[in-house]
């Protein structure tokens, strides 16, 4: 029983990370109809920059809060230099384009930081808390907390602010949005910045648990993408449900069946869901003809 609880805690921790990464996918997709497969690289950059800044002698929390705007600027540069010139490309080309960006960034990162994983200290002291026979590290709780903060923050931003209204307008009809004085180009730029910030948060939250290395973004990006697909592209609640489900399936599969097969089991479930519901469990939120 306590073992099962332990698997669930682990699953919820990794699942929360997948959910945050998936929310990054959803944020860009709902505004621009672009799936940014380089999303995982934002996560990697978050962890790596956090390591570099704190290794350079900056206090922990200053490094933390400096990393976010740095990765944001990076995300905006990606939008301006890579995504914008390919305006109007179809899904196939966009997939290829963002995969290209992803392996390009990964290659550069390996040349800068080398191949060994970097050790990052946890947010607070890391003595495990015993809870009903399972031990929970404080960092796991931080990860879940950050996931909740991201969910609430995104909800507030999209539903309650002028920028959020702009996002929704561009998503529904970019031409009409322009007539009302909202620039879809600026909203696209902002959505990449926001998504990069979300990715960086995920990267820094997971760094003390899964030490970041240059290739950490690959699997996290793929898992986040599958979580977003699982829930139905463009749906934020779907992304969170997808992320947590994949995390739980993976952790229970590893614990109860075979730890080597955990990825196969997780992706098997994703395939099964796509077989039953070809556009995710909550279905794609059909938000009009938005896009770049």
């Amino acid at each position: 029983m306590s073992e099962l609880l332990q698997y669930i805690v682990t699953g919820l921790t990794t699942g929360s990370i997948y959910a945050i990464v998936a929310l990054g996918f959803v944020t860009i997709y709902s505004v621009t109809k672009v799936i940014n497969l380089a999303q995982g690289e934002f996560v990697m950059l978050g962890g790596m920059l956090m390591y570099t800044l704190s290794a350079a002698g900056l206090p922990y929390w200053i490094a933390f809060f400096l990393t976010i705007p740095l990765v944001m600027v990076f995300g905006m540069l990606l939008e301006r230099i890579v995504i914008r010139p390919a305006k109007g490309a179809d899904a196939l080309s966009l997939i290829i384009l963002t995969i290209g960006a992803s392996i390009f960034i990964r290659g550069i990162a390996s040349m800068i930081w080398g191949k060994t994983p970097k050790k990052v200290e946890p947010f607070t002291s890391n003595d495990p808390i015993q809870f009903a026979g399972a031990s929970v590290t404080p960092q796991s709780l931080w990860v879940m907390l950050i996931m909740l903060v991201v969910v609430l923050g995104l909800y507030f931003l999209v539903e309650k602010t002028v920028i959020g209204k702009g996002f929704q307008a561009c998503s529904a009809n970019p031409l009409a949005a322009r007539l009302l004085g909202i620039s879809p180009a600026r909203m696209s730029l902002l959505s990449f910045g926001l998504s990069a910030a979300i990715g960086a948060l995920a990267g820094m939250a997971i760094a003390p648990i899964l030490y970041p290395s240059f290739d950490v973004g690959l699997m996290l990006g793929v898992k986040g993408f599958s979580a977003a697909i699982f829930g139905g592209l463009g749906s934020s609640p779907g992304a969170v449900i997808g992320g947590l489900t994949i995390g739980l399936v993976e952790s229970l599969g590893a614990g109860l069946i075979d730890s080597g097969l955990k990825d196969a089991i997780a992706f098997g479930v994703v395939l099964l869901i796509l077989l039953i519901r070809p556009s995710g469990i909550l279905g794609e939120k059909s938000v009009g003809k938005g896009g770049l």
């Binding site: 290829i96 290209g100 960006a101 392996i103 390009f104 990964r106 290659g107 040349m111």
Partner: peptide
């Protein structure tokens, strides 16, 4: 020495991006 096997990926990534943008 600074060109490792990972440098391949930098080139392949640049190719993928360049082709989609300039030569679809």
């Amino acid at each position: 020495t600074f060109i490792t096997s990972e440098f391949e990926y930098v080139i392949f990534g640049a190719i993928l991006m360049g082709v989609v943008i300039f030569m679809p």
